[in-house]
Amino acid sequence: MKQAENILSLIPQRPPFVMVDELLFCDESSTKTSFRIIQDNVLVFNGKLSEAGLMENIAQTAAAGTGYKANLDNIPVTVGYIGSVKNFEVFELPKIGDELVTEIKIENRVFDMTIISGTVKRNDELIAQCEMNIFISK
């Protein structure tokens, strides 16, 4: 689907704070992205993507899905904020060169709040997961 150069048409974040590369899949209830860890990433420390990077990667995967649907509906991509994160488990910090595949599922929508669950995998191996409430500003 959308490559790195136009992932920026889907999310409000801009370099150097972009934590997704490519939109792999998107439908009404789920979104999947890929992300390769590079040395220059501002959330890479000591050769590894930080917990903060994993959390942001999940949030931006949700943002890419919201942006994809906004593009289809011809409405502008809006800024979203993380309202809360629950049960964020980190099993490992991925290294430079690793390719992550992140999937979010929309669990519920309540007014401007979207409740998602997200997983980050590397070659089918679970790296991190959480539930997240994302607030879309109007």
Binding site: F17, L43, E56, A59
Partner: peptide, 16 residues
């Protein structure tokens, strides 16, 4: 990048 013309301390950075 977070966000252009509208700086917001990323929630993720607080974790770091």
């Amino acid at each position: 990048g977070h966000f252009p013309g509208h700086p917001v301390l990323p929630g993720a950075s607080m974790l770091q």
